[in-house]
């Protein structure tokens, strides 16, 4: 009675089973082929290693450096990748030059392929070798709607490495902004000149890029931009104010101490925390008086940061002892004790 259903199911199971087995065999054969190709690549790498070394360090050209098969391409590519992570300066420029010569056409065709992962791999290579010859193609890809967000990120990085003049415009014309960290990784590759040009158009950028620029000033401790940061402190956006404070702390300099006092009185604990942090980092005049209030703060984070900030002043430890023994606030006393101990461990003496 059920025999029809059984036959049907047996068929389905058999079809699935043979499909899976077929796929499996295909993968196993592919693996075997790849293993043998891998062996050939390794072998060829050994053969041309000397030539690549001579090219990079002794500026000798060699006929080995004119690949005519994919195995040879792979071998040179890998050797150059290995070298690019260890050498700097002149050698790196020679790697870019060789990569531009050898791989330009090959990579250009890969970039036009449909397969996302092979485009991604090529982009990583272009970035790693710092190739310049493909910039035009990359800019076109940025304008293409079909290019994925991941690809755009690496393209921006490549253009930034090459100090591309069009970056500011490209940032503005990008319909979907990247994340703050992604922008940071782009900004990180710029030289001073390009960075100045980028900050000129600050107000026109998407929000995450603004945050990234502020962060970057802090990370690279760009003293020239303190005024720029102080200007952002009156921004209506909370995050921009906080990040600017943080960056000021990183740079370690503040032109106007009034700013900190305003932050120390803020209703938001994050701003009070940043006030404590910035006082510690910049050792601004009259900072200790503000810290006396902050170590009694209702938030644990603010108290801890304030206690820590005390230690950056030369008479800070002494002030912490005062708080430990005389303060009417038990939380402040606890926090002071902990940081006195840490301060002494770190070799602080007075």
């Amino acid at each position: 009675m059920l025999s029809q259903e059984i036959v049907l199911l047996v068929w389905i199971a058999l079809v699935l089973l043979s499909a899976l087995t077929g796929m499996f065999l295909y993968l196993v054969i592919k693996k075997a082929l790849e293993m043998s190709q891998e062996k050939k690549i390794k072998h060829y790498m050994e053969q041309i290693h000397q030539a690549v070394y001579a090219y990079l360090y002794q500026e000798q050209n060699s006929r080995h450096l004119l690949p005519d098969s994919s195995i040879k391409y792979f071998a040179i590519e890998r050797l150059l990748t290995e070298y690019s992570s260890v050498i700097e300066g002149e050698g790196k420029a020679r790697i870019s030059q060789l990569a531009d010569e050898l791989f330009h056409d090959r990579y250009k065709t890969f970039l036009q392929q449909k397969k996302w992962s092979s485009r991604m791999n090529v982009l990583y290579k272009i970035d790693g070798f710092r190739m310049k010859s493909l910039s035009e193609v990359l800019r076109e890809m940025l304008m293409d709607e079909k290019t994925s967000k991941e690809e755009k990120l690496i393209i921006f990085r490549c253009l930034s490495t090459n100090q591309d003049e069009a970056l500011s415009e490209l940032f503005q014309s990008e319909p979907v902004p990247l994340s703050v960290l992604e922008y940071r990784s782009i900004l990180n590759r710029m030289d001073e000149k390009t960075f100045i040009k980028i900050t000129d158009d600050y107000s026109l950028y998407p929000y995450p890029l603004k945050l990234a620029i502020i962060d970057m000033i802090g990370i690279q401790k760009k003293l020239d931009y303190v005024q720029f940061l102080e200007d952002q402190l009156s921004d209506e956006n909370f995050e921009i104010r906080i990040r600017s404070m943080k960056a000021i702390g990183e740079v370690g300099y503040l032109s106007d101490s009034e700013v900190v006092k305003r932050f120390a009185r803020s209703d938001q604990w994050e701003e009070r925390l940043m006030a404590a942090k910035v006082i510690g980092k910049t050792r601004v005049v009259n900072g200790l008086d503000v810290l006396d209030t902050l170590i009694k703060d209702s938030s644990w984070m603010v108290r801890a940061q304030a206690a820590r900030a005390f230690l950056s002043y030369s008479d800070g430890l002494e002030r912490l002892y005062d708080i430990r023994f005389t303060s009417d606030d038990p939380f402040a006393r606890d926090m002071a004790s902990e940081w006195i101990e840490r301060g002494i461990e770190d070799g602080y003496s007075y």
Binding site: M1, L2, E5, I6, L9, V10, I12, A13, L16, L20
Partner: peptide
Amino acid sequence: EMALLFFLLSVMIGSL
């Protein structure tokens, strides 16, 4: 027959 069907389905769930 039903048991046989059950077996086939569990082969699909488990083994396949």
